[in-house]
Computed example of a mutant assay.
Amino acid sequence: MTGEAARIGQRIRTWRLKQGRSQAVIAGLVGITEDYLSRIERGRRLPTIPVLLLLARELGVEPSALLDAADSEQIPPAPDGSIDADVAACLLRAGATGEACVVTSQVLRERVDEVWQLWQTSSTRFTDAAALLPALIADVESARRRGGTEPVERRETHRCAADLYGLLRSYCRRTGSRDLGLLVADRAMRAAEDADDPVRMAAATWNLGHMLLNNDQSDGAEETVVHTIESLSRLPASREVAALIGALELVAVVAAARQRQWWRARERLSAQAFPAAERVGESNVLGTVFGPTNVQLHALSIEMEAGNASAALHVADTIETGHLPIERRFTFLLEVARCYDLDRDDAGAFVTLLDIEQMAPEDLTRSPLAREIITDLRNRSTRTYRRQISALAERVGIA
């Protein structure tokens, strides 16, 4: 029994008993077994984020009522335990607790842009972002609730919120928190709709598509982005619109690949994404990083997922990623390492992993694929590399 599990369980039990409701009733309404709820209340299980949200909704209380707002350690962690507890707490409370500063949309814009800059460039981006995000989430939500009388100010505040939650989608995805990722993707969409901003609504759809892919819902991701592509095509032509269309095309490409329809993924990449990238050039509209290089990265991904490691490595040799944000460079090198791993080229995989560790150590530690590759290498390593690979495994926390 852990302390946080016991305290959360006790609060759930207290709220349930205050309402005179049985475990059987609450469990049935939430969609879990009575035994599971019993173990939660006894502190034997820490509820997952979706279960916690459902329990709070059914008991008619804020999620924060089931958590100790003064103790961030009581936030249920993401599956890999890597999400910052203060960020998770603020997302669950939507900035509704504590005192938030009264700030203008101009100040919010500067702070949102600062976090985006850190997220895309810093080798310690998780630590850096986690230091800034809780206060920023609270201030953005406070500004949105406060509203104001000036339409331009209100609209810019909603745009700041949409951009912030777009970043948080990436943050939640990289920390392994799928449920919070869907939550922030939904908030990005609502903020973009409140701003009446079609380009940001498209970016929010791009975010949602990635979260659906991350939750193994490739059919839903493809249907969602294709509908948005059609809507964007009716807007006046601009580089922003073209970049968003291209970024959405890449989500559809990934969706086809996840369904193992390699021919369809390759065809969409060549017929839709490549021409769009040639028209747009290298861009980073609302964090989508769409352009010729990103399209090439997706060509690499298709061949890797199809098991064509040699073909994927041939594509990788033609790609220069130095100008890309750190997240895309990390993904590129990780997929190169995976291709070497599939080819049983242990030296190539190991050297690439060392390059990743130097560039983005926090990403390496948090990546399930990276941990899988390192484990593979350690399990089959020869005497030549065993000590070095075991040391790398220890540094990323693999027992």
Results as ranks from 00 to 15, higher is better:
residue 282 E to G: 12
residue 283 S to G: 07
residue 283 S to W: 11
residue 284 N to L: 06
residue 285 V to Y: 06
residue 286 L to S: 04
residue 286 L to I: 07
residue 287 G to Q: 03
residue 287 G to L: 01
residue 288 T to G: 02
residue 289 V to R: 15
residue 289 V to E: 15
residue 290 F to A: 12
residue 291 G to P: 03
residue 292 P to M: 12
residue 296 Q to F: 08
residue 296 Q to H: 10
residue 296 Q to C: 11
residue 298 H to K: 04
residue 299 A to Y: 04
residue 299 A to Q: 10
residue 300 L to I: 06
residue 300 L to R: 07
residue 301 S to I: 02
residue 302 I to M: 05
residue 307 G to H: 08
residue 307 G to S: 09
residue 307 G to A: 12
residue 309 A to K: 00
residue 310 S to C: 06
residue 312 A to V: 01
residue 313 L to I: 02
residue 315 V to W: 13
residue 317 D to E: 14
residue 317 D to Q: 13
residue 317 D to K: 13
residue 319 I to H: 15
residue 319 I to W: 15
residue 320 E to W: 14
residue 321 T to H: 13
residue 322 G to T: 10
residue 322 G to L: 07
residue 323 H to L: 12
residue 324 L to T: 04
residue 324 L to Q: 08
residue 324 L to M: 12
residue 326 I to F: 09
residue 327 E to G: 07
residue 329 R to T: 09
residue 330 F to C: 08
residue 330 F to Q: 04
residue 331 T to L: 12
residue 332 F to K: 00
residue 336 V to Y: 11
residue 338 R to Y: 02
residue 339 C to H: 02
residue 340 Y to H: 15
residue 342 L to D: 05
residue 343 D to S: 08
residue 343 D to Y: 06
residue 343 D to F: 01
residue 343 D to I: 02
residue 344 R to P: 00
residue 344 R to F: 10
residue 345 D to R: 05
residue 345 D to V: 05
residue 346 D to H: 09
residue 346 D to K: 06
residue 347 A to I: 14
residue 347 A to R: 15
residue 347 A to Y: 13
residue 347 A to N: 12
residue 348 G to L: 05
residue 348 G to E: 02
residue 348 G to R: 03
residue 349 A to C: 04
residue 350 F to Y: 07
residue 351 V to K: 11
residue 352 T to W: 04
residue 353 L to E: 04
residue 353 L to H: 07
residue 353 L to D: 04
residue 354 L to N: 08
residue 354 L to Q: 12
residue 354 L to P: 01
residue 355 D to P: 13
residue 355 D to R: 15
residue 355 D to M: 13
residue 356 I to M: 03
residue 356 I to N: 02
